[in-house]
Write a protein that binds this DNA or RNA. Structure first.
Lengths: 157, 157
DNA sequence: TAAGATTGACTGTTCAATCTTC
DNA sequence: GAAGATTGAACAGTCAATCTTA
């Protein structure tokens, strides 16, 4: 039972590796999102930021980054692109001059409203190969993985 | 039943949106992969390329890109990084002077061997929040989604 | 013309370093 | 010093344009 006796990883098909499948799933959704909503010029990330902002009052960037589970740097980049299109506004926090706060604009709310149907279709289409029960089960399991790993991350950092 | 009667997307929690969860799952795996194998300096993508190459003879880049479901440009980038570390070698195809072929080197095979355990742990840890049956079910559903969407992609292009 | 690859541009992602403010 | 943000570097991913060769 020395080393070499167990199967090597190159004998493990890509389609059975969780990491590979995770990358593909993400890739597929981004592709479908683009397909359904190219004309709006928002990426899934930018859309997430905008839709979360729509449910919040003026918020500082760190809080927002945590909400969408993003690096602060990535958040800054996305917000800058949204700001340049007038979909959000940013300013220095009046209570803490280190902090930047941001809020959605009327134009941003309007775009969200217009995109609503296309975005829902993109999400739906991602799971389309499964039947309704399977979709429910899949989302439940996926949600548990993400939820637990978030706790894990919280412990580590 | 006019527009506005149905629930807006901002009332749809991120943790129930397939696209958001897909991004998070991928993010989590990349993070775990890094955690278990920083010392080897390979990313999951580079590892995929290397491990697929280990099971193939000298292969042209387009074939390899299709195998790992990657854009040709992304593949080129990854291969260049592997080549610069001497883990693979590339050359112009003798049969078609437009094509580049690549093959793994002894050094590449050796690295794969050393990394084997860490990589398996990273994949395993990604699904750790689920019990064994759930993991099996989850992978099965995930695999079906990716498989079907691949057929879809094939049809479109 | 079409196929293979590369380049450049833009976005996303993380990390380290830095700057400002607390 | 610590907490906010930004900048720069490196890698990943896609697309359009270009170059070479078939």
């Amino acid at each position: 039972m020395g080393r070499g006796a167990k199967s090597k990883i190159q004998d493990w098909p890509l389609m059975e590796r969780p990491g590979f499948l995770a990358r593909r799933l993400h890739q597929i959704h981004v592709s479908l999102f683009a397909e359904f909503s190219v004309e709006f010029g928002l990426t899934p990330l930018q859309y997430s930021l905008l839709s979360v902002l729509s449910g919040l009052e003026e918020t500082d960037q760190t809080t927002l980054a945590n909400r969408v589970a993003l690096d602060r740097t990535t958040t800054t980049g996305g917000l800058k692109r949204l700001e340049s299109r007038g979909l959000i506004r940013r300013r220095t926090s009046p209570s803490d001059r280190r902090a930047q706060t941001c809020a959605i604009t009327a134009k941003g709310l309007e775009l969200l409203d217009i995109m609503d149907g296309a975005v829902k279709r993109a999400h739906k289409e991602t799971l389309q190969p499964l039947n309704v029960e399977e979709q429910k089960k899949f989302l439940e399991l996926l949600c548990r993985i993400v939820g637990h790993q978030e706790e894990r991350r919280a412990k580590v950092s």
